[in-house]
Design a protein around this nucleic acid. Sequence first.
DNA 1: TAGTGGTCTAGACCACGTG
DNA 2: ACGTGGTCTAGACCACTAG
Lengths: 246, 246
Amino acid sequence: MLTENTIDRDGQQKLYVQVYGSIKDKIERCQWPVSAQIPTEDELCITYGVSKATVRIAISNLVRDGYLRRQQGKGTFVASSMPHMGMAMRTIFTEDMFGEGVKAKKEVLVKGIKEPPEDIKEYLKAKDDIFYVFLKRLVDGEPAYVEESFIPLQVFPGVASEDISRASFYDLIQEKAVRKIFKVVQTIEITMLRGDIAAVLKRPEGSPALLLHRLLLGSNEIPIAYTRLTGIGGKYKIQTEFERVK
Amino acid sequence: MLTENTIDRDGQQKLYVQVYGSIKDKIERCQWPVSAQIPTEDELCITYGVSKATVRIAISNLVRDGYLRRQQGKGTFVASSMPHMGMAMRTIFTEDMFGEGVKAKKEVLVKGIKEPPEDIKEYLKAKDDIFYVFLKRLVDGEPAYVEESFIPLQVFPGVASEDISRASFYDLIQEKAVRKIFKVVQTIEITMLRGDIAAVLKRPEGSPALLLHRLLLGSNEIPIAYTRLTGIGGKYKIQTEFERVK
DNA sequence: TAGTGGTCTAGACCACGTG
DNA sequence: ACGTGGTCTAGACCACTAG
């Protein structure tokens, strides 16, 4: 299909799908190079002979799929990187035990202001006080994993008076913190159990464990909080569901 | 805030945000119970005194956030389960090596029709032939992980003639298979290396490894393909990025 | 101040699911 | 045939960004 600005009105294809395809085509052929500004919405209306609402649906879908980036008052731009394995999906990351342990319980072990390790200080780019929570999660009475969270008081002044063992840290932040979460970067790897954590989990030091880092970021990539989760091998599993959103 | 159907037109709050909040409120107070049909879009227009476009933005956002479910020709319904850690985000799951190995290369070891293990047969619910691919990925010449994929010929008849080593399996399916991917369920855990895989990865049998299962589903939860990825501990990391989509 | 994307209206007609 | 959500129009005005 050639890149034409013609819209087939008698055809079966929806108008906004045709506009979507035409714009996507131009991007993929680099007719509109990366980070270039594309024509304004009003111009596109004239080009394709459709109304603004139609153009906006097409553009919204292109933004959702990672092809474009919108900036109010400035314009619409070709997004920097093509979404490789990227998908606009509703994501559910659950931390679930093997075998669906029912009597799961969180138990806070340490809580308060603490000077964090250097690497975490780096991640959080925070100069002021950082709140620290260290908790373990029990399943059927057996320790299953430990969770360490670091959150600058600046972004969540009231954190000290929250019941952390009940809600998930994510929900708590989303509901009560100053900043909202816009991005999550999560890394999973295998490590050897650190001595102090091994003791809490009642496992020999150095036995293999699942280590999950999670950095929560606000708009403009500003760090909000950091969570580190260590689960013992064999018993612990992380399940993530991605569901396409319309 | 009480559940009222009043919209503040002089206020700062956008109309569709107010409508969003009011509906969300009704759902959370179980005034509209789970799986109940909510008023039609036209009715909501009258209730709130706004236009259809405004109501549709509010409802679209509620669908995106997992509160509602739309069915053309039937109506709009309260979604069955509240999204706990669910977010409508653009998701990028990358399989990245520790240290960003540049000279990464995929190498296909086995390829063809194969009778799959019972558990995978179960997942795929497929009665006919299943295509099997077994490949290893090298980073800087060293084996880093192996990947086993199972895909029924029914959903991807042309799979045998594709260059699997180049593209990702996900992209290939999305582009050329009969069915499109609508949902991904992914599980990560620690296991001991199986003998045959240990040999390929040049590691002792039984050493700890990262095991990632990934089930790709189409619309109506129909299984499309199954991928299993085994990476060695210490060297291998899985990074996932979640970015909120507007 | 000019130009952009963002919101909103008051309609119209279409496509789909059910009786 | 009817009611539902889905698409589409041709405007208007607002909010943000930049010169």
